[in-house]
Design a protein around this nucleic acid. Structure first.
Length: 698
DNA sequence: GAGCACTGC
């Protein structure tokens, strides 16, 4: 029996971390028993032996199989055995796509091993590092490991690298795939310095993974215990009670296509409500804030008219922009005799786990951003989910017990959905990725060993943008690229390269203090946030922050007021400013400021002047500019695309001759957000060649 | 006159 160690409470700046741990804080005396009950526990020894034999291996197992906590621990014990010989002094890294996961798993594993968090077991995430020189097992975000790789491309501190949740295919994990493969190859010749790699994933794309990793052996971990029975529903037909006693997971498809998935979701909620015991909670997947607010009203309206003998409903919303306190309500215990209904975006797919969900309603839709390298515009559209995503949603029901999942589309439709979601790297702007790759000494980015390569056009676009910024130039070999002095400086900042350039340009305009604030606020979700019921009042209130120079100056005013009010929660509340996002901006600003000090940039202020700030923004964002037309509309300078100032901007209804914008997103129209007015002279000064070539001499 | 999903350094 192992030693028990109570959980140490760690203080985090982000209070957003707290709710995720709620479902993950078992009593320590139950810990050992809980571990023994994990599907993986009995097979653990055998798995570790297999992992020990192969230089790379792939572990496949569903969420809840225990692989995330048990494999790193098993590897750590293996490490102790090997300590004397092969891997002395080296560390085992285990990466996660999300910081909350890295933190809570580190806490869990240190408790299971009976050691203090921060001693042999620790975690490293942005703004928070609990590791120490004794740390042997380190949980971290994938982005953090990628950052470390820039300083040490062979990852020589590590003996084993475990990439967990590899099926999620974040940009960071995808780049790491190639990086660890290269590091492993480079370290192969030295017997005492070899790197072992373990990829852990849910059951998808097994062959694809194994092919990429030189036919690495695939090890399976048993997952869900409930057999799944699929059937269809006509008019929300309920399965009979006899079947339900058989511990079978019911998967239901719609017989006919649903023309209105929102209406169908509403009907499904009330059908389940009438057919199933009131203590069984429902989770509904919808696409966005507005949709969720609408369904919330509708459910509440309908439930008012329910007969008095039908149990009541308690409806909760769940989406990322929702204030923390309201998000946490989904964890509240439902009053006896009432049913909990949660209306959620795909935040509940992976990021937040709500215990006790018995029924999932899947509309089959998701709102997703897509990027076309040709157009340079991001679009935000409601799309069909992939089959893998549908299964992920299904898996949110019946985690402790059997459950049901209602797919509001036909089995035929499901069959036609793409098997997997397109990896993020194939639908993102790669400027930042390419800059990082060059810093990792990957000179030929076009032939990098990607598991699923992005299009050549997309890579070319990124290189083009970096050249425009003066970060990258052609090497001696025409196929190879190299970083310029400026490019090397830009790599230090965890920002979009355009914003890194803006920060570095501030040294020439004497306004780094202001630029740090503006860039930090541009890096977080909108700090202006109001509940829909108080929209008018909020809009009126925000007018006192407005600037005729634009949103960037408005953001600066908000930040200054926030600091003057000493970060007062009340002030935020009264002014409809998001305290959570402001705190996040403060944290980012501190990190950026530290990096500036390291880079020896002078921390100067331009006082009340705004021109230096706007000139400085132009240095990095000159390609994101629009010109006023004779008819009063705006047109982007580079692609001559008609755009509209977003109504949330303080320059909405204003007509400056030239505008700089931070974002162009197509929803119902092509909107530019976060805009400020600039002088045409500044544009030519910032990028003479670019403007001369494109628009001719004035 | 619109309403932006999610994550990360």
């Amino acid at each position: 029996m192992e030693q028990q160690q109570p959980f140490k409470r760690q203080k985090h700046f982000h209070n957003r971390d707290s709710n995720y741990h709620k479902s993950y804080r078992p009593e320590s005396q139950d810990l050992y028993q809980e571990r023994c009950n994990l599907p993986i526990y009995s097979a653990r020894g055998k798995l570790i032996t297999e992992i020990r034999k192969a230089s790379s291996s792939i572990v496949i197992g569903e969420t809840g199989s225990g692989k995330t906590t048990q494999i790193p621990q098993g590897s750590a014990q293996l490490q102790y055995l090997l300590e004397a010989g092969v891997t002395k002094g080296k560390v085992i890294a285990c990466t996660q796509p999300r910081r909350v996961a890295a933190i809570s798993i580190a806490k869990r594993v240190s408790a299971e091993m009976g050691v203090d968090l921060g001693s042999q077991v620790g975690y490293t995430v942005r703004f928070d590092d609990t590791t120490s020189p004794q740390t042997k097992l380190k949980f971290m975000t994938d982005g953090m490991l990628l950052r470390e790789a820039i300083l040490d491309p062979n990852l020589s501190r590590y003996s084993v690298i475990i990439l967990d949740e590899a099926h999620e295919r974040t940009v960071h994990t995808d780049v790491l795939f190639g990086v660890v493969k290269a590091a492993q190859r480079n370290r192969q010749t030295d017997q005492k310095n070899q790197l072992k790699v373990v990829f852990m994933s849910a059951t998808m794309d097994v062959d694809h993974f194994s092919n990429f990793f030189n036919s690495a052996p695939v090890l399976y971990v048993q997952g869900r215990q409930h057999p799944i029975q699929a059937s269809t529903f006509e008019k929300f037909l309920s399965p009979n009670s006899q079947e339900r006693l058989c511990d079978i997971f019911q998967l239901m498809y719609s017989v006919k296509p649903q023309s209105d998935y929102i209406y169908a979701a509403l009907v499904a909620v009330f059908q389940i409500h009438q057919e199933y015991p009131a203590n069984e909670d429902i989770l509904v997947f919808l696409t966005g804030q507005e949709e969720i607010e609408g369904v919330l009203r509708a459910v509440n309206d309908v439930s008012k008219d329910l007969p008095s003998d039908v149990p009541g409903l308690v409806v909760y919303r769940l989406y990322a922009a929702l204030p923390q306190a309201i998000q946490e309500k989904v964890f509240q215990k439902t009053p006896t005799g009432k049913r909990k209904v949660i209306l959620s975006t795909n935040i509940a797919e992976t990021s937040i786990t709500i215990p006790g969900i018995k029924h999932v309603i899947d509309t089959g839709r998701v709102k997703a951003k897509s990027y076309q390298p040709g157009s340079g515009v991001d679009t935000l559209k409601v799309q069909w989910v992939s089959q893998a995503q549908a299964w992920q949603r299904t898996g949110r029901a019946g985690r402790e017990d059997s459950g049901t999942c209602w797919r509001l589309y036909t089995e035929e439709t499901f069959g036609k959905l793409p098997a997997n979601t397109i990896p993020e790297i194939q639908r993102s702007n790669l400027a930042s990725v390419v800059l990082q790759m060059l810093a990792l000494k990957i000179k030929d980015v076009f032939h990098f060993d990607f598991m699923d390569p992005p299009t050549e056009e997309s890579l070319k676009n990124a290189v083009e943008q970096l050249k425009l910024l003066g970060a990258v130039e052609d090497g001696i070999n025409p196929k190879e690229l190299k970083l310029t002095t400026l490019g090397k400086e830009m790599v230090a900042f965890p920002l979009d390269p355009r914003l890194s350039k803006v920060i570095l340009a501030a040294r020439n305009f004497g306004c780094l203090e202001e630029i740090l604030t503006v860039v930090s606020l541009l890096s977080v979700d909108s700090v202006l946030n109001a509940p829909s019921s108080k929209r008018e009042q909020a809009a009126q209130c925000w007018k006192k922050f407005y600037s005729t120079d634009g949103d960037h100056i408005m953001l600066l005013t908000i930040y200054r007021s926030f600091i003057a009010m000493k970060g007062s929660k009340n002030w935020c509340h009264e002014n409809f400013v998001s305290l959570r996002n402001m705190k996040h901006a403060v944290e980012i600003r501190k990190q950026l400021k530290d990096l500036c000090v390291k880079a020896q940039l002078p921390l100067q202020s331009c006082g009340r002047e705004t021109a230096p700030i706007r000139k400085c923004l132009v240095q990095g964002m000159f390609m994101n500019t629009a010109e006023l037309q004779v008819d009063g509309t705006f047109m982007t300078l580079d692609r001559k695309q008609p755009v509209t100032i977003h109504p949330s901007s303080c320059l909405f209804n204003c007509k400056p001759s030239y505008l700089l914008f931070n974002e162009l997103v197509q929803t119902s129209k092509s909107y530019i957000r976060n805009v400020c007015s600039v002088d045409s002279e500044w544009l030519y000064e910032a990028a003479p060649a670019y403007f001369r070539q494109r628009f001719g001499k004035r």
